[in-house]
Design a protein around this nucleic acid. Sequence first.
DNA 1: CCATCTTTGTGCACGCGTTCACAAAGACAT
DNA 2: ATGTCTTTGTGAACGCGTGCACAAAGATGG
Lengths: 254, 254
Amino acid sequence: MATGRTHRPATRSRGIPEATVARLPLYLRALTALSERSVPTVSSEELAAAAGVNSAKLRKDFSYLGSYGTRGVGYDVEYLVYQISRELGLTQDWPVVIVGIGNLGAALANYGGFASRGFRVAALIDADPAMAGKPVAGIPVQHSDDLEKIIQDNGVSIGVIATPAGAAQAVCDRLVAAGVTSILNFAPTVLSVPDGVDVRKVDLSIELQILAFHEQRKAGEEAAAADGGVPAAAARGESADQGPDGDMPAVMPA
Amino acid sequence: MATGRTHRPATRSRGIPEATVARLPLYLRALTALSERSVPTVSSEELAAAAGVNSAKLRKDFSYLGSYGTRGVGYDVEYLVYQISRELGLTQDWPVVIVGIGNLGAALANYGGFASRGFRVAALIDADPAMAGKPVAGIPVQHSDDLEKIIQDNGVSIGVIATPAGAAQAVCDRLVAAGVTSILNFAPTVLSVPDGVDVRKVDLSIELQILAFHEQRKAGEEAAAADGGVPAAAARGESADQGPDGDMPAVMPA
DNA sequence: CCATCTTTGTGCACGCGTTCACAAAGACAT
DNA sequence: ATGTCTTTGTGAACGCGTGCACAAAGATGG
């Protein structure tokens, strides 16, 4: 999950729940795949399976957009692709800038999933003068001194931050000051932005940590099941000599 | 958000809500930063601000772990770092493999956030024979023929998929067959896995699409406000000659 | 030892999201 | 035209997550 928007209590956009909006890209991807195979119509059941959700949820999601299905038949694939694209705003061109052209920034610049959905990489920006002019993904990297000018000349409203954590807030401030109102943040920091600016974050290591949590739990349960014993307390860490709930800290509190 | 696990209805792990688990890495990051600055204690209010959440939520989250705070004082930073790390399973070593060493895979291999949290990149795997032996982030890439052996030799239980979408399911199946029980998927596909295997996905373009949705809505509201008119229906698409709700499709349904 | 002040931990209420289950709508065959 | 069958769209119930607001706990000062 990536949250962090400016918490919009009233005005739930046209009545479409946030959770539904977050799933629309999923449906769109599945529909695009069907479209490429020239499948004319699809039922909620089939599409739900392809998108990895439950069919009731999918139908309710679509009901927020309107009645675009035909009872007894299903949904017209092309029609739905258009409707969802329009709802998401993908029928227009969105110029984006990527700031911070390290490994991740370069990967993002090369990522095909952007261009195919109306996102156009308008510029790549990096603070390292040695990078300036060097082409990445066919686009010459520009120096961050020109950030404001680049934003304004290209009418950019969406910025992607892929800098180290330390530089992220400063870059964010400059982007916002230059007119950017949506930010996708890959740096592991909490960005503070004024009202009216949306921030979404993607943290690569957070997802891994969540997996580790469940993985550990699985291992614990397994061991407990083998012992035929209590839920899951032992066989969790590596040092076994801990309290009844494994509470002994490495560093005691004051 | 990244969902897609095998839906665990009963056994909500030790009673810790999923939403809380997803925030623990956030707290941990903020606490680690405090620890590096040698801050001894922190109040829920301060820590919440640093993590970008509300303080009541943070206190409730911590209450699921136990009573680790001191009223009138706050939380002991080092102690809390340890407790959260232990809860997330980061006190043990997690060998991971990254499959698909393109731009993204290389970025992941170089990403510092893994190593600093108990994740060790045990191997890099790619299907391209030309990549074999080539070092990325100091680790020689191995060919995917040896995938099963690599998994077993290193006791890997967490796999990262950074291949093209078309190859993802096949790689996933092989990882699972070889013993991997947690998968972080960067490929834009829905993976199907047997029960007991957790999948989390990160889709770079989904987040951008969600931003576009809000961006479009902002633009629409702005225009409507300027017109002094109805909510947001006009000024959305580019072609203005549409129905009362902008419903005319580019492709009519059958 | 007592009073005051700070901050945690949590009971409670509310709202959002999910799921069930079914009526309504339409396709299709006869 | 009528009946059957499929599939949508949605009302209603439920459960989870969030945020408020406050009592309990402990620190601190006199």
